[in-house]
Structures are given as structure tokens and as C-alpha cells.
């Protein structure tokens, strides 16, 4: 009996934790359709005014374009780097492999604000700051480890004899890679590309520092929030959420459906 009460209490606590985690997400979606300028309870009437204003806003349109360019380019570069490193780790043993892997895996352990300052200083020193591709460079460094992790997990599942068999049958290393390894990794590659794009699409600290005048959507959100309370933020936030979630669900579909099964 007391065990059952304990279980009930534990599950109740779990529910509370979930309420805490999801309250701000749900609230922002609700507020995005609210007519009052400052959202309170009771809510005003339902309106899509917040969405209409952001679709009409040229600056936000520009930022959306920047964000799309940055996250797509980032995902291509990060996934390529991630694949090359994951394949090297899978296939080769060599000295200094530990430091080699640390090179790609360490960036997420360093606070973004420190990366932001370091990137800004270094990129402006070599004359590469304030451009859209400055953000792309920075985001590739930050997201490559996630691509590497996903691809490495996938390569873990391949039978190493398959590639060796291809070599024995006379195929070159390149041919074996193209006909054996890449097809096997395709779901993970798509998954890694979606995930890195989603992370890049949301990142604001580093983008804010290195972007100069080329603002991305999260940087615009940051500026709006800094200014004053504006319900626009909820509408933009909901759209960003929708975009990121689509990417994550795609990543999950490819990752779980294929990688999980085989």
C-alpha cells in the first residue's frame, strides 16, 4: 500500500517537473494568438495579428532568409566534417587519436558566450567577421560534434567485413566508400544534417557576436526582447519552434526508423 502511495507521489512529481518544463513553451504559443499587448489572465480575444505583423516585417523576412542560408550551409559543412571524422575513427587506429577526437568533440563543453567572444576576436583579427559566412564558420565548429556522434553510432552498426569484401572483389577504397559505406549511412547523414540545421537555426549568442549587421532570426528575437515587451516575440518564437521541431522529427524518423532497427 505504502509502495503504491510512493509511486503515486513520484509520478505526481514527474508531472510537476513536466509542467515546469512545458509551461513556457505552451504559454508562448497561446500568447502568440492573444490580442492584449501584455499577456495576462484572462486572455484577450483570439487573433493572428502577431503573425500578420511579422510576415509584413521586411527586417524579419531578411533575418529568416539569413537564418535559412546559415543553417543549411552549416548543416552541409558540419555533416561533411562529422562524416570524415566518424569514418576516420571507425576505420583507423593511430597515435594521438584521443586528442584528434577531442578536437571535434570539445566545443559543446565550452560556454557559448566564451566561444562568442573568442570567435568575434579571432575572426575580426583575420578579417572574417561581420559576414553571413562568419556565422556559418562558427556554427559548423559548434555543431560538427553532434553530426559526428550520430554518424559514429551508425558506423558502429556496420559489419566491417562488408567494406573489406568490396576491396577483395577489386573495388577501390573510393568505390567501396561510395557503394557500401555511404548508402549504409544515408539515414544517419540526413538525420545529422537535420539536427545540425536545427541547432544552428536556434543559436543566438555566437550569431549575435559575429554577425555584424547580418542578423538571424534568434538575434532579432534577442533584440526585440531587449527593447520592450512585444507579443511579436511569441509569434516568431512559435514559428521558429515549428521549424526546429520539423527538423528534429525528421531527424528522429530517419534515426530511429533505420538506425534503431538494424
Amino acid at each position: 500500500m505504502s509502495a503504491r502511495i510512493a509511486t503515486g507521489l513520484l509520478l505526481g512529481w514527474l508531472l510537476l517537473v513536466f509542467v515546469f518544463i512545458f509551461a513556457p513553451i505552451v504559454a508562448s504559443v497561446i500568447f502568440s494568438f492573444n490580442s492584449d499587448r501584455f499577456p495576462t489572465i484572462p486572455l484577450g480575444s483570439f487573433t493572428t495579428h502577431g503573425y500578420d505583423t511579422i510576415f509584413a516585417d521586411a527586417e524579419i523576412g531578411e533575418a529568416a532568409r539569413n537564418s535559412i542560408i546559415v543553417s543549411l550551409s552549416t548543416s552541409v559543412i558540419a555533416t561533411t566534417l562529422g562524416f570524415a571524422t566518424a569514418y576516420t575513427d571507425y576505420r583507423y587506429r593511430f597515435r594521438f587519436k584521443g586528442p584528434y577526437l577531442a578536437l571535434i568533440l570539445l566545443p559543446p563543453t565550452i560556454p557559448l558566450i566564451i566561444m562568442a567572444l573568442a570567435m568575434l576576436a579571432w575572426l575580426s583579427w583575420i578579417g572574417a567577421s561581420g559576414q553571413l559566412w562568419s556565422i556559418i564558420i562558427a556554427h559548423s565548429v559548434l555543431t560538427a560534434p553532434f553530426a559526428m556522434a550520430i554518424l559514429r553510432l551508425r558506423l558502429h552498426q556496420i559489419d566491417p567485413d562488408l567494406e573489406a569484401a568490396a576491396w577483395n572483389l577489386g573495388s577501390s577504397e573510393w568505390r567501396a566508400l561510395r557503394s557500401v559505406i555511404l548508402p549504409f549511412c544515408r539515414p544517419a547523414i540526413i538525420s545529422a544534417a537535420c539536427l545540425t540545421a536545427a541547432i544552428s537555426f536556434d543559436e543566438f549568442a555566437v550569431a549575435w557576436f559575429v554577425s555584424g549587421l547580418n542578423k538571424t532570426v534568434p538575434v532579432i528575437i534577442l533584440e526585440i526582447v531587449q527593447g520592450n515587451i512585444d507579443p511579436q516575440v511569441n509569434a516568431i518564437g512559435s514559428l521558429v519552434f515549428l521549424t526546429s521541431m520539423t527538423l528534429v522529427v525528421l531527424a528522429q524518423l530517419f534515426f530511429i526508423a533505420r538506425v534503431g532497427r538494424t
Binding site: 518544463i21 512545458f22 509551461a23 513556457p24 513553451i25 504559454a27 508562448s28 500568447f31 536545427a198 536556434d202 543566438f204 534568434p218 528575437i221 534577442l222 526582447v225 516575440v233 511569441n234 516568431i236 518564437g237 512559435s238 521558429v240 519552434f241 526546429s244 521541431m245 527538423l247 528534429v248
Partner: peptide
Amino acid sequence: PFFTSYLVRTFS
């Protein structure tokens, strides 16, 4: 939550 804007959640 990792893929919802942390800024927007803070604003909420």
C-alpha cells in the same frame, strides 16, 4: 525543449 528558442521560453 532543446529545440524551442530558449529566449522565447525566458520571455514566457
